[in-house]
Amino acid sequence: MNGYNFAYLDEQTKRMIRRALLKAVAIPGYQVPFGGREMPMPYGWGTGGVQLTASILGADDILKVIDQGADDTTNAVSIRHFFQRVAGVETTTATTAADVIQTRHRIPETPLRAGQILVFQVPIPEPLRFIEPSEQETRLMHALEEYGVMHVKLYEDIARYGHIATTYAYPVKVDGRYVMDPSPIPKFDNPKLDGNPALMLFGAGREKRLYAIPPHTRVESLDFEDHPFEIQRWEHACALCGSDHSYLDEVITDDQGGRMFVCSDTDYCQSRRGEVA
């Protein structure tokens, strides 16, 4: 795109983000403040992820962008177009072929491999925010490793509903130290954070925070001995590929209450169908 630098951001902004990324990797799960910039898409639509991707992406990289696990959702299409325009990179929908994957709300079903980078879009990076609205307070709570309130909140759910009522953006503890918001992925995806061979980077543009989980890092979902962490399960298999182990979207098929369940990860579903066929 004429008039703009490679990958849109100017080099100085990229360097600022790169320095912050190194600190994020050095202190897994800690939210590093960074001088986030306005991007040509709205805050809340992935500007944090876009800035991170723009700072790491190279001309030879192959990029995949997903939203809700799907490559063809409108915002995924829009962000993919953006990078095609400003960086001229090759894009793919195949998880296995991608070097960099930018995602909103899902981790691909296909296991990631060493060398891949998964960039998460994060709306509210602070896992304690809905318990304590003040940034000054939550910063102190992280410093003092004072996470009791989070357990109290989860336990209140158990008292009221019999279950922990957090189904997505389920808090995790990284390498035994920082409690971290894994972004609004369903808790179904939380186990994939643990010991993943890929590097996972998280960017919150509006809140101007970025953080990281290096490869092979211990990531535990918070839970209780008598209420261990568990993930969602479906009574159905995917109506398209027959998968009985992937995250399923419920699709309403008619006005008679008819519905079906299909994989939310479109690439995974398609490649399974390709293998079967």
Binding site: P42, Y43, G44, W45, T47, D67, Q68, G69, T73, T74, N75, R104, H105, R106, P123, T167, Y168, A169, P184, I185, P186, K187, F188, R206, Q232, Y247, L248, D249, E250, S264
Partner: peptide, 16 residues
């Protein structure tokens, strides 16, 4: 930006 992002698909979390 953040208010309008509610228009983006959230069906995965909604499913949860």
């Amino acid at each position: 930006g953040f208010v309008s992002h509610l228009k983006l698909p959230h069906y995965v979390d909604f499913q949860s």
